[in-house]
């Protein structure tokens, strides 16, 4: 299908560019590791303290890393006005949204795949469970769904880098709350069933915001 082949072309193009420069992934990864390091000093690495704040730490790190990485998503499209180049391609505007969502999702998941084991190692936590990985992937989808929309919006404003967090963070607060609570339970070794009601909140957030952002995206790139 033409829609998906073009979506994949956009994702592939972003991945290729990233593979060459490693701009986003390396910077975001270093940032995430630094945040973890700073948390360690801020809260002290005593086991009882870690148990209390571990899940919060994880999601503060990923939320801020997400802002950093999503900020870059549309800046590359503005550099030689490539966004106009995409707008003259024979396809609906939504192709751009989906392609960018997939690319940002890919970058975020790579960063998380590296940061999570480091996190586990440094704080001696059972991070690598199916539950926690599942939660991470689901919450990241929600971040990227909202973040890609706002990233496209933010590049058209005066203070690009500052606008995204101001828009993005209040909207994803419910997602962060659910992520923190669910990860807390997952770190305590609870089963999938005990993650209720957080899991349905996360999943419905993902679905609803993917659909709404998909529908509304054209208004942002079009004048």
């Amino acid at each position: 299908m033409s829609f998906w082949s073009k979506v994949i072309a956009i994702t592939r193009k972003d991945a290729l560019s990233e593979l060459r420069t490693k701009e986003i992934i390396s910077a975001v990864l270093v940032f995430a590791l630094l945040v973890i390091l700073i948390f360690n000093f801020a809260f002290g690495a005593r086991p009882e303290a870690v148990d209390l704040v571990a899940s919060g730490m994880l999601w503060v790190t990923f939320a801020f890393a997400g802002v950093l990485s999503l900020n870059r998503a549309f800046i590359v499209e503005k550099e030689d006005n490539c966004l106009d180049g995409l707008l003259i391609c024979p396809m609906s505007r939504e192709v751009i949204y989906v392609g960018k969502v997939l690319a940002s999702l890919l970058f975020m998941l790579i960063v998380e795949a590296i940061a999570l084991p480091v996190f586990a190692l440094l704080f001696n936590l059972p991070v690598l469970t199916a539950q926690l990985i599942g939660i991470t992937v689901l919450v990241t989808i929600g971040f990227v769904a909202v973040g890609t929309l706002f990233s496209a919006l933010a590049v058209n404003t005066k203070a690009r880098e500052m606008v995204l967090p101001i828009l993005f963070l209040p909207i994803v607060i419910p997602l962060i709350v659910a992520a923190v609570k669910a990860s807390e339970l997952a770190l305590a070794g609870k089963s999938w069933g005990e993650l209720y009601p957080w899991l349905p909140i996360i999943i419905s957030f993902d679905v609803i915001f993917l659909v709404v952002a998909y529908l509304i995206f054209a208004f942002i790139v079009e004048e």
């Binding site: 082949s5 560019s17 180049g85």
Partner: peptide, 29 residues
Amino acid sequence: RRHIGVVTHQTFLYGNLTAYENLDFYARM
């Protein structure tokens, strides 16, 4: 859009990709 070609003072090209990769990308689009 299939009937028109657009060239402006901005190139619409991705600096990090090779010329071939850029052309290949737009050919796919």
